[in-house]
Structure formats: C-alpha cells, structure tokens
C-alpha cells in the first residue's frame, strides 16, 4: 500500500520534471541546441508566477496568461541569438550556461536570495489532494500530470501530423537537406523555441504552486531533468513524459523500500544501462508517417 502510494505520488511528481525536460528535449532534439538557459526560464516563470499571484488578483493558474507569452518571446529571442551567431551544439552548452547564471543572478537581484512562497490565501493548491480509497494524489503534481498530458498530445500531434511537424523532423535529422527542400528553418526554429519557452512558463508556474522557491533551485533541477531527457530519448515528446513518470515512480518506490538517498543511485544507474542497451531512449518513436 505504502509502496504503491509512494510510487504513484512519485510518478506524479516526476511529471513535473517531465514538463521541465520537455522544452529542453525539444530544442535539443530538433534544433541541436543544449539550452541550459531553459532552467533559467523555468526559474523566471516560477518567480513571475509568485510575483503576479501575490501582487495581482489573477490567481496562480491565470498567471500563465502573462508568463506564457513572456517566456515564449524570451525563448524565441534566445534562439534567434543562437541562430544569428550560428552557435554549434557544444557552444550552445557554454553560451546557455552563461545565460543561465545571468538569469539566476537577475532573479536573485530582484527577489533576493531568500526563500519565496505564495501564501495559502493566494495559493490554495499546495496542500490539496484528491483521494481514491487510501491513495492520495497531491493537486499540484496532479495538475502537472494533466498539463503534461495535454502538452504531449498537443506537441505530439503537431510534430507527427502537421506539415510544420514533418518539416521539423526533417530538420532535426538533416539541416542541409531540409533547407534544400525549401523548409524555412529559421521560422520553424523560432516557433519551436517559443513553444519550449511556453513549457518553461507552465513548469515554472507548477513549481511555484508546489511550495518554496529560491534562485538556487535552477541548479538542483539539472540532474533529474537530464536523466529524464536521456531516458525519454532526445526530442521524443511522449518518451520524455513517460520517462518522467518512470523516474518519479522508481524514485518513490526506491525511497520507500530503502531511503531517498538511494534514489539517485538507482535512477542514474538506469540511465547508464539505458544508454548501453537502448541508446535511442527507452521509448522509441513509432516510425512517423512520411
């Protein structure tokens, strides 16, 4: 019972990290950019949510009306800069690390290093849950799973079913050939980076919804998020979501059986085994329609 509860709650918690991983995976897979600045965008999303929710009557969920456009534009702008300077995959790692520490310091300067937390009067979600018999599902992570599912279906449909999506996949596989076929990679890249920015806004909002935020949080996400991106398969939207659920569930079960300190051991050993035996990710894409 307890293991089941820990595993299910863990899986839901994992879906929040899957949301963080989604944007990273998209830009990595399709645009060949390892965008560490994505963590900075998520952080910014959290703080904007906090700020808007506490200083306006919007309510935490509705802050998305503001944060999605803001981070969408910011994500697209960062990508335009990468494009303008023809940043390679390796260079993108360094440039985006530079951007990440700048973003963290900016957040730090605006909101101070101290912990921030939405008051219960503003944020009624943090401690709510939905029960099913003896099992309880915390509302913030339930929301994360819901948003995750919607995004996976939405982004998955765009990528698998639309012309833009096919162009994107062609572009992800071979830039030069795709360009030769008249695919406007610049536009597609900007749109995709914008979508990744929007996912950062959602992930940031949900993180703020769960509890306390500090500028340093951005660095604590890196390990788990990368594990999910790798296990899900880089650029694989649905795979990323499943990997998030899996990593969360495994962490929960391991924490329940042994201790939470054993969780990283098991999760990252899984990553190594997956890379050795299933290098294309645990959830290979079904062959797309061409």
């Amino acid at each position: 019972m307890n293991v089941l509860q820990a595993g299910l709650a863990g899986a839901l918690g994992g879906s929040l990290f899957a949301l963080m991983a989604l944007g990273l995976s998209l830009t990595w897979g399709f645009l060949k950019v390892i965008n560490l600045a994505h963590f900075g965008l998520i952080l910014l999303g959290s703080y904007l949510t906090f700020e808007l929710a506490t200083s306006t009557p919007l309510g935490p969920l509705n802050t998305l009306l503001v944060t999605i456009p803001v981070l969408c534009v910011l994500g697209a702008a960062i990508h335009l800069a990468y494009e303008r300077f023809e940043v390679s995959e390796l260079s993108s790692l360094l440039v985006s690390y530079g951007l990440l520490i700048i973003l963290v310091q900016v957040v730090h300067n605006i909101w101070s290093a101290d912990f921030r937390r939405m008051d219960a009067s503003v944020n009624p979600y943090a401690t709510r849950s939905i029960s099913l018999g003896d099992l309880s599902f915390p509302l913030p992570t339930l929301l994360a799973a819901g948003f995750g599912l919607v995004l996976v279906v939405l982004v998955g449909t765009i990528i698998n079913r639309t012309y833009a999506g096919r162009a994107l996949r062609a572009f992800g596989q071979d830039r030069e050939i795709a360009s030769a076929f008249g695919i406007d990679h610049r536009l597609i890249g900007v749109v995709l980076a914008g979508v990744a920015g929007a996912t950062a806004a959602i992930a940031g909002m949900l993180f703020a919804l769960r509890g306390t935020i500090t500028p340093d949080a951005a660095f604590e996400w890196v390990g788990l998020v990368f594990a999910i991106v790798i296990l899900g398969g880089i650029g694989n939207v649905a795979g990323t979501f499943y990997a998030g659920l899996l990593v969360g569930a495994v962490s929960g079960v391991v924490a329940s059986f042994w201790t939470p300190s054993h969780s990283p051991l098991v999760v990252f050993s899984m990553v190594v085994l997956a890379l050795v035996f299933r290098p294309e990710g645990l959830f290979p894409r079904r062959a797309g329609r061409h």
């Binding site: 390990g223 990368f226 594990a227 790798i230 880089i234 042994w258 201790t259 300190s261 054993h262 969780s263 990283p264 051991l265 999760v267 990252f268 050993s269 990553v271 190594v272 890379l275 050795v276 290098p279």
Partner: peptide, 23 residues
C-alpha cells in the same frame, strides 16, 4: 556508441558516485 551517447553516459556517472558515497 556515438559521441553523444558517451557524453550522456559520463553525465550520469558523478550522480551515481555521489549517491554511493552518501549511502
């Protein structure tokens, strides 16, 4: 093995070692 896989593999190792040291 491609370069990318190697990079990701090495990314995971410090996390494993850290957890081993801790437990």
């Amino acid at each position: 093995l491609r370069g990318e896989i190697f990079a990701l593999l090495t990314l995971a190792i410090p996390f494993i070692l850290s957890a081993i040291a801790r437990v």
